[in-house]
Simulated assay, not measured.
Amino acid sequence: MTHRILVLPGWQNSGPDHWQSRWERLHGDQRVEQDDWDWPRRGDWMARLEDTLLADPRPALLVAHSLGCQLVAAWAAHSRHTDRVRGALLVAPPDTEQADMPPQLYSWRPIPRQRLPFPATAVVSSDDPYCSPERAAAMASDWGAEVVTLGPYGHINSQSGLGDWPQGRALLEALART
C-alpha cells in the first residue's frame, strides 16, 4: 500500500497476540502510542493522533480498535487536518454511553456522531460485550461508515481467535482503493 498505516488501539492497548500487533509485525504498520492506556483522556489521545499525523506528510489510513474508533470520531469532529486521512477501519466500536462502562472511560462521553470526512468501514460483532449490534450500526450510520458484521466474535480482539485476520486486512486494502 502507498499509504502509511496508523494503528489506534483501544483502552489498555493491544497485546502481542492482538491482530493489530500482528499487523504491525507483518506489515510494518505504526502504532500511535498513548501516554496513558489505563486512564485514557479523550483530549490527550486526540492531540497525540494529531501530532502523529502532522509529523509525516504522507496520507494515512487509520486502523482503530475499540476506543480507538471513538478516538477517530472525536478527532475528526475537531481537527482541521482531516485531509491527512484517506480512510478508517473501525473495528468493534464500544458504546461508551452504556451505564456499565468503567469510570476510566467517562471522558469519552458523549459519543461524537458527526459524519466522518473520509471513507470508513465499521466491523462489528453480533455478540460484542461492549456494544450491541444495533448501537454499533447506529454509530456507523452517523459516521457514514459501511458496516461489516462478522458474526459472534466477541470484541474482535485476541480472544476472538482471528490470528493475522486476513479478512480485516482485505477490508483495509479495499479502503485504500477508495
Rank of each mutant, 00 (worst) to 15 (best):
2 T>Q: 15
3 H>G: 02
4 R>N: 05
4 R>W: 03
7 V>A: 00
9 P>R: 03
11 W>M: 05
12 Q>C: 02
16 P>H: 10
16 P>V: 03
17 D>N: 10
17 D>V: 05
22 R>E: 09
22 R>W: 05
28 G>N: 02
30 Q>M: 01
30 Q>D: 02
31 R>E: 00
31 R>W: 01
32 V>A: 01
38 D>H: 13
39 W>H: 15
40 P>M: 11
41 R>P: 07
44 D>W: 13
45 W>I: 08
46 M>D: 11
47 A>Q: 14
51 D>W: 08
53 L>Y: 01
54 L>Y: 06
56 D>N: 05
56 D>Y: 07
59 P>I: 00
60 A>Y: 01
60 A>G: 05
61 L>M: 14
63 V>H: 00
64 A>C: 12
64 A>P: 09
66 S>D: 01
67 L>C: 10
74 A>H: 11
74 A>F: 01
80 R>W: 07
81 H>E: 01
82 T>G: 12
86 R>S: 14
87 G>H: 08
92 A>M: 09
92 A>F: 02
93 P>R: 04
93 P>E: 11
94 P>E: 09
95 D>W: 03
97 E>H: 03
98 Q>M: 11
99 A>C: 03
99 A>D: 06
103 P>M: 03
106 Y>T: 07
108 W>F: 06
108 W>L: 03
109 R>G: 05
111 I>L: 10
112 P>F: 05
113 R>E: 04
113 R>V: 08
115 R>E: 14
118 F>P: 00
118 F>K: 02
124 V>Q: 14
126 S>W: 12
127 D>Y: 11
131 C>I: 06
133 P>M: 02
133 P>F: 09
136 A>L: 06
138 A>G: 10
141 S>A: 13
142 D>G: 07
143 W>E: 05
144 G>Y: 11
144 G>W: 11
145 A>H: 10
147 V>R: 13
148 V>L: 06
155 H>C: 00
156 I>T: 13
157 N>P: 03
159 Q>D: 15
160 S>P: 12
165 W>H: 10
166 P>W: 12
167 Q>T: 11
169 R>M: 02
171 L>Y: 10
175 L>K: 10
176 A>F: 05
178 T>G: 13
